[in-house]
Design a protein around this nucleic acid. Sequence first.
DNA 1: TTATCATATGAACGATTGCTCATATGTTCA
DNA 2: TGAACATATGAGCAATCGTTCATATGATAA
Lengths: 109, 109
Amino acid sequence: MPHNHDELLKHVSADMPSDELLQDLGDLFKVFGDTTRIKIMYALYEDEMCVCAIADLLKMTQSAISHQLKVLKAANLVASRREGKTIFYRLADEHVKSIIAQGYEHITE
Amino acid sequence: MPHNHDELLKHVSADMPSDELLQDLGDLFKVFGDTTRIKIMYALYEDEMCVCAIADLLKMTQSAISHQLKVLKAANLVASRREGKTIFYRLADEHVKSIIAQGYEHITE
DNA sequence: TTATCATATGAACGATTGCTCATATGTTCA
DNA sequence: TGAACATATGAGCAATCGTTCATATGATAA
């Protein structure tokens, strides 16, 4: 017969966050899980930038950048302000930097 | 004529990590970007567990869990040890906890 | 050895993702 | 108002991803 771990499961599942929260957590990290978006966040590390500057920097189309900025904004990772025709994006949150920093540490060890 | 941001780009690109590192960083977060894998890592938060216990806990097939553990192991996020027929997995690294904790903070604010 | 348990793995399939292309929206200036 | 610039968006497509199913590997005990 297969081995039993009811005791363990009872204990572990008590400490497990709700499915909804775990889903949100996965969705958040999914946003970090793309090189283009990582690059955008790094570009905004020090200062705000407009969309076309980011596109120039990453040598990608304005459309591609704009789509990704929308994803980042929906996850509350970037915020924006308008100045005339131009829209400037910036990091929304100190968490962005600390999440990236933790990931950086993990891979550079 | 389109506006110019050569100065900014020169400055920002100097501070940008290499493409290879940014790729690795994206790949790492991609691993965190799935609910099943997040659940597995949470399950291992306090103690090691065998594959079938994780499958029981998440009400998923042994195969699905095994595939995901392979992904986690390839990213050096979990480690394993064998004890007879059973293989126990554990978190490989304190970074796992801190990355998840940062993400948790971001969404619960 | 043979039977059983525990885990791993390869192929296949549906779902999701990121880009491109064309076009729309919004702002400024002449 | 019309032209040019800056950005946003919807549809479509190729590529990637996570699961299932069938089966393989590995370990233990009779």
